[in-house]
Write a protein that binds this DNA or RNA. Sequence first.
DNA 1: AATCGAAATGGTAACGTTTTCATGAATGTT
DNA 2: AACATTCATGAAAACGTTACCATTTCGATT
Lengths: 335, 335
Amino acid sequence: MAKPTIHQVASRAKVSTTTVSRTINTPALVDAETAERVWAAIEELEYYPSEPARSLVSGRSRLLGLIVSDITNPFFPEVIKGFEDVAVGQGFDLLIGSTDYDPQKMAGCVRRMVERRVDGVAIMTSEMDNHLIDQLARRKVPMVFLDVATPREGIANIAVNYESGIDEAIDHLVALGHRRIGFVSGPPHLKSAQIRRLAFLRSLSRYGIHEDNRLVVEGDHKVEGGLAAIARLLQLGVRPTAVLASNDLTAIGMMRGIQAAGLSVPGDMSVIGFDDIWLAQFTDPPLTTVRLSRTELGERAFHALVPEPAAAHGGTQQDLMVETKLVIRETTRPI
Amino acid sequence: MAKPTIHQVASRAKVSTTTVSRTINTPALVDAETAERVWAAIEELEYYPSEPARSLVSGRSRLLGLIVSDITNPFFPEVIKGFEDVAVGQGFDLLIGSTDYDPQKMAGCVRRMVERRVDGVAIMTSEMDNHLIDQLARRKVPMVFLDVATPREGIANIAVNYESGIDEAIDHLVALGHRRIGFVSGPPHLKSAQIRRLAFLRSLSRYGIHEDNRLVVEGDHKVEGGLAAIARLLQLGVRPTAVLASNDLTAIGMMRGIQAAGLSVPGDMSVIGFDDIWLAQFTDPPLTTVRLSRTELGERAFHALVPEPAAAHGGTQQDLMVETKLVIRETTRPI
DNA sequence: AATCGAAATGGTAACGTTTTCATGAATGTT
DNA sequence: AACATTCATGAAAACGTTACCATTTCGATT
């Protein structure tokens, strides 16, 4: 039998299709002895229920969309992993979509998600315009964003507590004697990058160190930007003794720039990254950085989409915050 | 209208549902003027056809499964990207499954794929047992494997031409004057790792350099294995002047070990990796390595699953080979 | 003894498409 | 002028489930 249907199972077990359906979906409603017969039939025939059919009639697809900009960006795989692990654990499947930072592809992703009738979408990319959000909202597709610019009614937003980790980083640096601390930001249009910059400034002010805008230079969250930024910092009259980067890629670019200039990390300059991507532990020397757990991000995103059956409390705020934490490796040293 | 159906579109455009279906699927069969009316209705209502419904009736889901062992492994994201790009280009969606090297999870993946009635599965992981393959084969689900151990009738296998790149690497090393060349292999149970080792040996023999089994040591395709392996190589009476690694992670471990021993790469020892993962360009110094294009791998996998509509020739052999190529960076130097 | 409720099951109508098959209308062919 | 052919459309039957409404049986309650 190539593709047995519920009918074949039913007739083999000498019950109705309804009963077969019930043994699978609501076992409590069927007699133990009958259930046994049904399961036997299911296994003998190697029956697998047709998801398209059940989706059609039940209205739920048990399918969750996950939209990222570029799966090749080392930030995302772990997010996906965290999300997938808990999703399949709960019986959901994962539909992946990449936007490649292209609004057109993004629209395509949304269309595909809607056509598949996904039960929810996690949108981990920023190039999402309002028109597309409306499209999903009108269809009442649950949505969750990552650090979105403007929170909206009925749309979950998972927020990152950048402050905690950055405070730790600054505490660490100050404890090592650093006072002239630089910062290389991310692209200005990225909300999360701005939050990081602000958190840095605020954290510094706790020690009465006021903003010196020559020490804050713009990067692009890529290696190239880090290289360019550190070059500007190095040609300053009075150089910073330590620099924080808005993400690890930037920090890596910075390290290369510093070393290319014949200086040493952390001998001549301490460096702290952000994210703790997998690569961070393999730089030379291993990068001190602020860890943002991407698997946790993924898990939270899932839970924002499908509410816990247990707790009916609208834990919509508290639970959607993920913490950051300093990981000390070898790119920081006393002044 | 929250979720318009084909019926709403039909009545608004004053045609039958059949005609609506045709304007979407086979535009050639419907009058231009009618089509226009239908499209207008579709857009006004924001109608998106229900994939579950069309899958059910058409028997094809336009869904492709992609099973990897661990999306966090830097090898996979690019494979996925290559696969996804061409798949969505052809109107397919992507269902991701991770096995975490766990046979049980693997079985779960297969079950989910079958239930979703995927139109094909690309299996990029080795822990696939025959029972599961049979399960898919019985259902006539097209399958493609990556470098599988034993090719099977009716199952596509995409093969990597390791030889070409490894030959290039050896040529390069020999041209630089190296003769004592070591090799750190992958785990012994991995077929592809064994092929790499054999290719290395064969390549060496082209220069009349016969196998010296003290120079071939076992790794595990991880950083740790590279570290352990290089330690053994370093304590040899006569050290190799160059070492090839079975993958980049191993090479990175080796570099760390060499540098930790107070030696320099490539000053004291040349190192060549394999794969050219994204990280390779960021090591210090940047790693010379043999590139295996993972995006190409993904693309080939797709084409093995859904045959080109244009060419009906069974291009099942030739097209499923992907080449490798030496990328010279800065970890090799004349002896 | 009559009634009720719960437990176990079945019949059948959805669900939203595509796929036959059928029907006219128009065009071309002899 | 009669007859194929093609073109454009529609009606209705699938597709494989689950949801809803009965029905039957049986022990418990009054």
